[in-house]
Simulated scan of single mutants.
Amino acid sequence: MSSDSARVDSQKAPEPVGLYPHARRVGNLLFLSGVGPRERGTKKIPGVELDAEGNIVSYDIEAQCHSVFRNVRYILEDAGASWDKLVDVTVYLTDMKKDFPTFNRLWAEYFKDNPPCRTTLEINRLPTPIAIELKCIATIGGE
């Protein structure tokens, strides 16, 4: 690995579901891997009810949004950045029609003052039984 690239692994965010770091710092930019709403140390996903085969029976997008925002904050803080340093967020939702209004309302609450750039996409499914994932870029260190 090059000396200008540093791996970041949070001790508070949920463990990655594959071989990748929580984030990687390159210069004064911090690139986060996709972040979902799972809780660290468990398979628990706030607001999700699964059947015996692990299929989603029901979910609460508001609970998932709060949890995914909290997990992003954990990674940012563990990397030496902060919420207000987010500059670009890609949002993946599995049901745009149903979940976007709630997500958009919560986004406005979390980013009242200086919202980052944002792209929101609907996708068919995510690797775990979740309804939202965020891909983020933040600044870190000197401005």
Rank of each mutant, 00 (worst) to 15 (best):
C65A: 13
C65L: 00
F69W: 08
S82Y: 07
A131S: 15
L106D: 07
Y59M: 00
A79E: 15
T119P: 00
V57E: 03
N104C: 07
V68W: 04
L106Y: 04
W107C: 10
F100P: 02
S58N: 11
A131N: 07
S67C: 02
A138F: 10
E62T: 09
V57L: 11
C136K: 05
Y59S: 06
I75A: 13
A138P: 09
S82K: 10
R118S: 14
F103W: 10
D113W: 06
Y74L: 04
L106V: 09
I130C: 01
S67W: 02
C136V: 07
P116M: 09
R73D: 13
A138G: 11
V87L: 10
N104K: 13
Y92G: 03
R118T: 12
D60T: 03
T119V: 14
M96T: 02
D84M: 05
C136I: 06
A108Q: 12
Y92L: 15
P101S: 09
N71K: 07
N104Q: 13
P129T: 02
L126W: 08
K85E: 13
G142Y: 03
M96E: 11
R118E: 12
A108S: 15
M96A: 09
I130L: 00
C117M: 14
V72K: 02
L86P: 06
T139V: 06
D60H: 03
G142W: 01
M96G: 04
K112C: 04
V89L: 10
N124L: 13
A138H: 07
E77N: 14
V91I: 14
D99N: 15
P116T: 08
P129W: 01
E122S: 11
R70E: 11
T139Y: 04
I75N: 13
